Simulated scan of single mutants.
Amino acid sequence: MNFTNVEQSKNSTLVPVSGLSFFAVASGFLMSLIPLSLPSFGLSESLVPWLASIFYLGILIGATSIQNLVSRTGHRIALIIFLSTLILTIIAMLLVPDAGVWLIARFVAGFAVAGIFVVIESWLLMADSSKQRAKRLGLYMTSLYGGSALGQLAIAPIGISGIAPYLTVIFLLMLAILPPLLIKRGQPSCEQHQKVKLCELRGMSRPAILGCLASGLLLGPIYGLMPVYISSQVQSADQTGMLMAVIILGGMLVQPLVSHLSSRVSKSLLMALFCLFGTLGVVGVLEAQNFVIIATSYLVLGACSFALYPIAITLACDALPVAKIVSATEIMLLSYSVGSVLGPLFAANLSDSPDGIIFYLGGCLITTCIYMLIKSMQKTHSEQWPLSQ
């Protein structure tokens, strides 16, 4: 998609960020609500990994087919359409509490959420410099994860049984629609299409693509399975919501640091360092006995897991013109979605241990750390000895 004359004065962050904030609160609450509320609707908890995976499958499919809709309607109308579709899927789940209907609804919801992410990310990433892109993406991630953390805290006061929590989510999503519905200015100007060609795809940063893949492999199970794991450990809805909020709060708090370092440190090395510290968070979750230390470990784990995607996507966009940002965003979301589809299934089935999901997250983090270190050293070597390549 070729957004050739993007006027920066018109490309405002107000609409996407304000809409995103309400969406993030609703989405954060919904992601924990669904696995925890299954018994109250007479549904089996064995559905949990499948609901998570099919949701991310919807994101994966959506990431391959959103560009045309955005080009025809513009960012603002596309955002309204995707948020409205998400609301309809929740209404369908409430009207027909059946496993098959819920699986279909979550697939469609994944498609809609993919649209929301592509629209907002591309809206914000259409900037002239990599520094401005990193700053805008930091604002995006802070709003997304801050809202998601706040949504987790709704578990205790609103509860997880019956239709009231879902009606709350619908109300928040309706508030998210208001900014793009009422503010008709501020979207990027769209004039032509331009996709990333296959030959250019081969030349895109492999650490960026694999960083998004690793992010999906981590965040899919964190969103889809972690609420059930924490609930089995603490036996308290209040503490479950609090620890889930702590994980996502870590993701929010780390964003200014990511934005600051991503323009100063090799992005491959930066991803390796975050994966290393994330592994230490995994060790803390497994070994700590004190609740404060456990919460701190979850905070570190969340910060490091949520740091990978913004670093990877800015790495992918660094060498691209503004005209190809939407297409690149789709490719990165596609990579993330593949990981998110596979992650919950791997985490649920690779180990019979009660701590299987934690072992899985540790394995993903240390593997990604090693890969990123190797790529970082290769890049350093090629810069120091260009004639040897």
Rank of each mutant, 00 (worst) to 15 (best):
L253V: 13
L308T: 09
A92T: 11
P180K: 07
N349P: 00
A52C: 10
S44Y: 08
S84H: 01
A176C: 02
S263K: 12
V119Y: 05
L153G: 06
L273P: 00
S382D: 15
L60A: 02
L257S: 15
L178V: 15
D318C: 04
R133G: 00
I170N: 12
Y309E: 10
V322M: 10
K324H: 01
Q389W: 12
V119K: 09
F171G: 03
V234Y: 10
F41E: 05
A245V: 03
I374A: 14
L350C: 00
I370D: 01
P180A: 12
S84E: 02
G250R: 05
P39Q: 05
L69W: 07
R76G: 01
K195G: 10
P179G: 07
R185A: 12
G146F: 11
A312L: 08
L219T: 08
V6G: 02
T380E: 13
E121D: 13
G211S: 12
S37E: 04
G74W: 08
A208C: 11
I230D: 06
D98F: 04
L36A: 04
A109Q: 13
Y140C: 14
L124F: 04
V113D: 00
Y140G: 02
I294R: 09
G241T: 06
V341F: 09
A348K: 04
Y223W: 12
A245M: 06
C304Y: 07
P227Y: 10
S32C: 14
A154C: 13
L334H: 05
A164K: 13
Q8S: 01
Y360D: 03
L57I: 11
S231K: 07
T4D: 05
E330W: 03
N68D: 09
R72H: 14
T296Q: 08
E45N: 09
H381Q: 15
Q235M: 14
T296G: 15
L210A: 06
G42L: 04
G74P: 00
I116R: 00
G281T: 11
M271T: 06
R72F: 14
E7A: 09
F306W: 03
S65I: 09
L257W: 10
A114E: 06
A237M: 14
I209A: 14
I90S: 01
R185I: 12
A237V: 14
V113N: 04
G356I: 08
M226K: 10
D352G: 05
V258C: 13
I66F: 04
V169P: 01
A348L: 03
S353P: 00
V6P: 00
K135Y: 13
M332Y: 09
L345K: 10
D128S: 10
I331Y: 09
L342P: 00
F41I: 01
T240R: 07
C364R: 01
A245D: 02
G147F: 04
P207F: 05
Y309S: 15
G62V: 08
V234R: 09
Q194N: 13
N68V: 10
A288F: 11
D355M: 06
E383W: 03
A24T: 10
L33R: 13
I160M: 14
I160V: 15
L299T: 03
G343F: 11
